[in-house]
Amino acid sequence: MRELKILAIVIFFTLVTYWGVEPFAHSIMHPHHEPATFKYEDLKPLNKKGDPKRGMKAIVNNGCVGCHSIKAANVPAPMDPVTASASYGVNPPDLSLAGALYDEKFLANVIVNPAHAMKLDHKFGDNKPFPMPNFYGNAQDLADIIAYLKALAKHQQLTPKAAFINACGRCHDMKYDNWYVIGPKPKMDTELEKAEFNLKHAQYQANLKNYLGTNPPDLSMYIRSRGEEYIRDFVEDPQKLLPGTAMPRVGLTKEATYQVIEYMEKVGDRKKDKRNFLGAWVLLYFVIFSILAYLWKKQIWKEVE
């Protein structure tokens, strides 16, 4: 039938054009990269067995709690976020969930030589030391610390939001979920409180910029602008996708990465479930509409054909 032939031609050229400007053009603009393996193969594995019971002592002896809080073990933060950022450039993260967030091998390496594990050797060195010092304690202490952090994390639940706040929240705002690098914005009644909050936020951001050379973006919409796959692979190895970037390799496990992505999706694409659900009904409506329209057309055209 002639109309079907015409339709086939229209569809053919539409698809060719679509293929050219979407999959084809994007494959050329964004060269293929290997997907994340979460193996951290460039790092040396930890080959000692640690004892969680001795871990807390090792943490105190090695000075970790001089910078980090461990809220789950009732260790408070030594400073508030803004003061900490003034000293270190960024607020050192709470370590309560570290054992669940970070890959074990990565964790060992990031404690021993943070700049190297985070792949920031190009930014830090002898004349610009990384804010977190290298670890010069003994190997057993290291193993004990890790065993302790892992045991501690087991007792808590790792939610998508907690994963994001602990792993990314010291650098990135998530303002569509009221998360700011200095903490959630409280309900404020007076102009003075608001101005104070904004001032603290601005000070923290200025310190971050000083430290990283750029301000990490608010990630509220990044699930739509970058998509799940890019975020997963970027977090696993930022230098692979943005060579020279100031974003550190954070060293998350595969599970923790997907928790972070789940959270980003909940914030940036909150209506996804609704969209998928409603779509089916709207399509069904138009299928029925088309069938009725076809029957009506047949009836009307009987008289003229």
């Binding site: 779509g279 138009f286 299928v287 088309s290 329209a293 076809y294 009506w296 009307i300 055209w301």
Partner: peptide, 15 residues
């Protein structure tokens, strides 16, 4: 009457 049918098909594609 014919356009409505074409429109219906198009709307499936659009939505």
């Amino acid at each position: 009457s014919k356009d409505f049918f074409v429109l219906g098909i198009f709307m499936i594609f659009y939505f």
